[in-house]
Structures are given as C-alpha cells and as structure tokens.
Simulated assay, not measured.
Amino acid sequence: MLPSANMASEDLSRLKVLVVDDHSNTVRLISDVLRAGGVGHVVTAQDGQRAREVMRLTYPDIIFTDSKMPVMDGLELTRSIRRAAVTPDPKVPNPEIPIIMVTGDRSERDVEIARLAGVNEFVIKPFTPAGLLSRIQLVVKKPRPFIISETYVGPDRRRRAELTYSGPMRRMSDPEEVADMVERRATRETISVELEAMRRLIQARGGADRATLQMTYRVMQHTRFRAKQVRDEMIARASESLLSYVDLMGGPERCEVSVVEVHFDAIAQILGASESDAAASQAVIAQLESVVRLKTAGRRRAA
C-alpha cells in the first residue's frame, strides 16, 4: 500500500528527503513525485560529493540516490555514509539514514553489490509514483535493524529485496479461481491511491508532459496487471482502453491529455461504484471505447 493510504499526512509533511542524481530532469521528476505525494521538504544534489555537503547542512531523513553518477556514484556515497557508523564523519550526521537506490540494474550481482554497500531498498527504472512512494512506506513503517560488524555495516539484509513489480495478489500462472471480495477491494484501494498520486504529480508539474505521459502508461500497465490478478474485469477493460489508445497513437507523447483525463475519471467512477452495479460500469466502459474510436479514427484509416 502507498504511504498516503497508511501514513498520516503530517508524517509525510515532516519528512526531509534528499534526491541525488546527475540528470536534472530525473531530479525534478522524482522531486515532483515526492512533493505531490505529500513529502514536506525535498533537497537535491548532483553527485555523491555534493550530497555529503547537503547532508551536513540539512540533516535529511531519507536519501534517494541514482546508482551511476560522475565524481561519486550512489554506491560509493552509500559506503561513505555507512562507514561513518565506525569512523565519525562531520558530513554524515546520521550513518543509519535509509538509502533507496534508483537504478536500471536488475541482475542479482548488481543487487548484491548494492546491498553489501548498505542500501535499504531499490526502485527500478522506469519508475512510477507508486514505486517511489511505497519505498518510503517500507523504510519508515518497517525499518530494518542496523548492523555493525567486522565485515558489514548497514541495514539487516535478511529480508529479500523485491525488484520486480509485485502485485498484491496472485500470479497470473496460479489456478484460475475466483478472487475473494477482500482481495479485490484491497486492490481497488491501491489502484485508487496510485491514480490520485498520478493526478497530483501532473498537477504539481503544471500539466501533463512527455515524462508524465510515459509514467501514466506504466501506471496503466500496472493497473491492468493488478485488475487481471483479481479478475476485476471493469478496471482491466478501462486500463486496457487507455493502453490501446496510446499504442494506436504511436506512443504516450502523441496522446491528447484530455483523453488520458477521461480515462482517469472513468476509472475513478468505476472504483467508486458498487461492484454489483455492473450496468453502470459497462456504460462507462462503452463511453471510453467510443472516445478512443473517435480519437484514433484518422490513424486507423491511414494505417
């Protein structure tokens, strides 16, 4: 579940998060996601060395750091922070600070290297608001014991890091059985929170741009995946409608923002409706599919 579902807004508003990345667009995107999610104070740095200076001056509560950066990368930054638990460092006020690695590396070797350095959690690129905010939930609500030994300094590594997307329910390969009502409702709650986080992000950035449209596409992929897991046909069809629209238009950056907003509103209507009122949800889906046919008619004829 996302922080906004389980963490009080005042808890998030008190947090100070340091974002470290050498790409200004990524820094802005992560910062916007965090602020839109309710984080009260976000500070930034372009590399590990500058991050250490920012830490000395601002005393952050959590760090999001890219894995690969010039001057000092995320791994070396993490090692320098954890070393301060043994050898005090004036630039590291809290050697136990939660560190979340933002990375495109998925191999077991890369993960193990990062864990040995003392990383708490991972966010895999390309990320979504849920991917970032859920890691705050983990490090704040489920902190790991901090270990200081001759061979390792950092958070307890015994809990396996989940790198791939993991929906809350069953895998698609599991037997086709009817998902129980509690499971479906929990999934709908998660989807609702994620869509609200996406809305807030778009609003915080002053409207949809290339980055947020691409992120919306990934959020819809996750939404469809979750809905199919719990046999939620209406939500699956609504998310599939937007994904089909994006594909027919030739990519997220070629989509009309108004069509994206119509899909967000439709999914919100379905989530707010009684599951027993299938007719109302069917009508919403029919409207969506009509909008997509209208907006993609020219491209269909050209194809």
Rank of each mutant, 00 (worst) to 15 (best):
M1Q: 08
M1F: 09
M1W: 11
A5N: 03
D11H: 09
L12A: 09
K16C: 00
L18D: 05
V19M: 12
V27A: 03
D32H: 10
R35V: 14
A36E: 02
G40L: 04
A45K: 01
R50A: 04
V54E: 02
R56T: 01
D61S: 02
V71S: 06
A84R: 00
T87R: 03
T87F: 05
P90Y: 01
E96G: 03
T103C: 02
T103P: 02
G104I: 07
A117P: 04
V123Y: 00
K125W: 08
F127D: 01
A130Q: 09
Q137T: 15
R144G: 10
T151P: 01
T151G: 03
R159S: 10
E162R: 12
S166T: 13
D180Y: 11
T190F: 13
L201H: 10
L201T: 05
I202R: 13
I202D: 14
G207Y: 12
A208N: 08
T212N: 07
R218A: 08
M220L: 11
H222Q: 10
A227W: 03
D232C: 06
E240S: 14
V246E: 01
V246T: 07
P252N: 02
R254K: 06
S258I: 08
F264N: 13
F264G: 14
S274D: 13
D277R: 09
D277M: 03
A278Y: 04
Q282M: 02
V284D: 08
Q287Y: 13
V291I: 15
R301Q: 12
A303C: 07
